[in-house]
């Protein structure tokens, strides 16, 4: 046993001090680096096009570079400044308008995320326990995602306003986008249980419920979180698309529509709103990552 003890200590020295923080730091530095490169590219292309009068001669061909003009692609500085300037005369600065509208959108997105997540999970459990259901219904679930959301959204708005519940239409539209990854990934997680892990349960004469709670569900958790991360960002997209035909006055989708209509007055406002929409999605994503870190704690750090 002496030899064994020595061997195990060395295994643990490696296991307990993994270079996690270094890896995380490196990843953060890397994404910051990529962002800086992207911003430099943005401004570099603009400067290059401006100095060539937005035209590039290659041999006899002329390439139009006007998409890099200030009208089409504003300076980053102008976009940043747009946040602090009022969108309407004597109104609040744009950032506070955006925060308020983002609040509405995020609310719908979270609603859609929960609704879609719950429904998607339920479908997966059903499919995991019935091959017949899976064979019969899964093709329709897949088909549902080939119909463009933008085509369905107006119908859902109409249905819910007829039912006198128009506030619900946006979360439902978002849910339409979020249930699908949850169903697919959860189903895979629930059914990809190793044969011997299942036989172990059978050797204890465990009930189906115990097998589900103590084996299938925890086995599926990493995949469920993969789905939830996709769903989190998709729910923000779904909420914004849902706002477009809703006729509501609030939300980032409505703001995007307004600023697009008056784009010529101030291009940076629309760009600032797009950036805000992206930020909301990233924020939601990061919340899920955090929850995942709290719950899925058993995995090797490098197996991410």
């Amino acid at each position: 046993m002496v030899g064994n003890a020595r061997k195990s200590t060395s295994t643990f020295a490696r296991a307990e001090n993994p270079p996690v923080d270094l890896g995380l730091l490196r990843r953060i530095l890397y994404s910051v680096f990529l962002l800086v490169m992207l911003l430099l590219l943005w401004e570099g292309l603009k400067a290059f096009s401006a100095s060539n009068n937005y035209e590039l001669q290659i041999g006899s061909a002329t390439i139009d570079l006007s998409i890099f003009s200030d009208m089409q692609l504003p300076h980053l500085g102008d976009i940043a400044r747009a946040f602090t300037e009022p969108a309407q005369r004597n109104g609040p600065p744009l950032y506070s308008t955006l925060i308020e509208n983002a609040g509405y959108t995020l609310q719908s997105a979270v609603g859609g995320f929960l609704l879609g997540g719950f429904f998607g999970f339920l479908l997966a459990v059903l499919f995991a326990h019935s091959r017949l259901m899976q064979g019969g219904c899964l093709p329709y679930v897949v088909a549902s995602q080939t119909v463009p959301l933008i085509a369905i959204a107006p119908m859902i708005v109409i249905w819910f306003s007829r039912a006198g519940n128009s506030a619900l239409s946006i979360p439902v539209i978002a849910a339409y986008l979020t249930f699908f990854p949850v169903t697919i990934y959860t189903l895979r997680g629930l059914t990809s249980v190793p044969e011997t892990a299942l036989e172990l349960m059978q050797s204890y004469a465990a009930s189906q419920w115990e097998i589900f709670v103590k084996l299938r569900l925890p086995n599926a958790l990493p995949q469920i979180f993969t789905a939830l991360k996709i769903s989190a960002t998709a729910s923000v997209v779904g909420a914004i698309i849902g706002e477009l035909p809703s006729g509501f006055q609030n939300g980032l989708g409505v703001t995007i529509l307004n600023f697009a209509r008056y784009y010529n007055q101030s291009p940076p406002r629309l760009w600032a709103t797009i950036a805000a929409a992206g930020l909301v999605g990233i924020l939601f994503f990061l919340v899920i990552v955090l929850v995942e870190r709290l719950i899925v704690r058993w995995q090797r750090e490098d197996s991410d």
Binding site: S203, Y204, E210, K214, L215
Partner: peptide
């Protein structure tokens, strides 16, 4: 029956002690 497989078939998400407790939870 107690059954031991060729692969240890421990549940990844359980600590060592929780793995040993698994049959006891079920019972």
């Amino acid at each position: 029956y107690g059954f031991v497989f060729q692969s240890s078939t421990l549940y990844d998400w359980r600590t060592v002690i929780k793995n040993v407790e698994l049959p006891l939870e079920i019972m």
